[in-house]
Design a protein around this nucleic acid. Structure first.
Lengths: 191, 191
DNA sequence: GCAGAAATGGAACGGACACTCCAATATGTA
DNA sequence: TACATATTGGAGTGTCCGTTCCATTTCTGC
């Protein structure tokens, strides 16, 4: 835990180096050696401030997500529109961190420690989407709101993946189709 | 190079072990030690038959792809329901290819060579979904069918990812909500 | 300016990894 | 059978990784 001014500054240098490395060389290139070298810090200093290497990586991702959060304070004022917009901004923005996030999620397919972290943040997001949905339609049951939030987030994640692999893919347009307010072009539902 | 009968058999044992490992622990869990242990083979025997670990992994993937007929009949009789069902079965079933596919897709976010492969198969699948959609509603334009296919596949991919990370997640239930026959909101009926 | 706590660098550790080396053995051929 | 060579296991190599340890230095409240 950083308590002194110098400690906080070092923490920022480490996060900054981690951020830059994630952007430049990807998750596989982020080694402790690289981080400490770029931050001009000894390994001891690093572990004085972070519990593990992953701890620093997740903190960088957390901050990146928070930076596009329409309601960082958790006041409950964000709409579904806002949330979808934030997700799209995160995925299609200039920050390469979205890429890292998806790669980590992929790694979570085999690494239980990462899976639990990814899952935790996923569940938090589902809750957020479900709340917004219920706020827009108070008659909706909580269970249904959660189910819809799961589908919407699944869709957004998948679309984000496509967008990252295919730069010409228009994620925003497709994402907007997911919104209940969207009244698009016509396909009568099949019976 | 295997020349004798025993060598060819050993080669098959190695490929079989690699295939099983890819299914069970994913691409990152496939170590040389694991392969040789499961195949009951020494490291020397392995390198007598394969140039590298990746050589064996790529061979397994190549064979797996080859063994899956993308459109056996080519009759174009499959419905959206069938396709979604197949996708869910693919993701939640015991087949190793789904996990490998997602893990490779994640790796493709930084590796252009892998990205192009992933993208190609993705586009092929979009086409398949779009065709089915147009078959069910001939009045739908091709562009719109493709747009819907993109959203649906994005959702399925994202849900599949969640399902792989969280075994308790009911992918099939959520996937069904994506179908136009379902009166959900995720893909809204259009006016 | 002193004491106690925080911060520091970097050597050292233990483990994982892909891969090499080689003496011993098995195999196919003539 | 006799010979060339394919095949074998597994100890050993070099490298890289995250993390720990600790003597030393720096910081800050009093």
């Amino acid at each position: 835990m950083a308590r002194y001014r110098v400690g906080l500054e070092t923490r920022e240098r480490i996060l900054s180096a981690t951020r830059r490395l994630l952007a430049e060389v990807g998750i596989e290139g982020v080694t402790l050696k690289a981080i400490t070298a770029h931050a001009r810090v000894g390994a001891g200093s690093f572990y004085n401030l972070f519990a593990s290497k992953d701890d620093a990586v997740f903190e960088v991702i957390r901050e990146a997500i928070e930076s596009v959060d329409p309601d960082p304070a958790g006041a409950g004022t964000d709409t579904l529109d806002d949330l979808v917009d934030a997700f799209v901004a995160f995925m299609t923005g200039s920050s390469p961190i979205a890429r890292i996030y998806l790669q980590l999620a992929g790694r979570g397919l085999t690494d239980p420690a990462i899976a639990s972290r990814v899952l935790r943040s996923h569940r938090r997001r589902v809750e957020r989407f479900a709340d917004a949905w219920q706020r827009e339609d108070p008659s909706m049951s909580e269970a249904e709101a959660i189910a819809r939030a799961e589908v919407m987030l699944g869709a957004l994640t998948g679309l984000g993946m496509t967008a990252l692999i295919d730069p010409s893919f228009d994620m925003r347009a497709h994402a907007n189709e997911l919104l209940p307010s969207h009244q698009g072009v016509a396909v009568p539902p099949l019976s």
